[in-house]
């Protein structure tokens, strides 16, 4: 599936941050982008819509990115979804924690469109 045909879910509690991520995704030719402001809101969207890629922040109120990831991986409908974790906490334990919870990959803030493209290429190999 080409990027332009994919539906991306961007999860972040900070609206400005969502906008930045969206801008970068648009640069990479993504067209269909939906947003959620925390894990709980993301779950609702994932249950009701067909999402092809999740780009989620780690640190959010109500439901963190890690909790969202765990939910995604245990839910039949979503368990194989590519999940890109956005993190600023370049702390080893956190990232390893996410890997153990089967994150597809992670990206450290701040990132450029080029870095995002590189990460996506790893987790969306068919493209």
């Amino acid at each position: 599936m080409a990027y332009k045909d994919m539906k991306v879910l961007v999860v972040d509690d900070f609206a400005t941050m969502r906008r930045i991520v969206k801008n970068i995704l648009r640069e990479l030719d993504f067209k269909d982008i939906v947003e959620a402001e925390n894990g709980a809101a993301a779950v609702k969207i994932l249950e009701s819509q067909d999402i092809d890629l999740i780009v989620s922040d780690w640190n959010m109120p109500k439901m963190t990115g890690l909790d969202l990831l765990k939910w995604v991986r245990t839910n039949e409908k979503t368990k194989n979804l590519p999940f890109l974790m956005v993190t600023a906490e370049a702390q080893k334990e956190n990232v390893v924690e996410a890997v153990k919870a089967k994150v597809s990959n992670y990206i450290v803030k701040p990132f450029t469109a080029a870095v995002m493209a590189e990460k996506l290429a790893k987790i969306l190999p068919q493209n």
């Binding site: 509690d13 900070f14 941050m17 930045i20 922040d57 109120p61 600023a88 803030k109």
Partner: peptide, 17 residues
Amino acid sequence: INAVFRPFHSIKGVAGF
């Protein structure tokens, strides 16, 4: 603590970009 931490975290993230 988390609720105080998080805004700094978010601000930092965006300020980085």
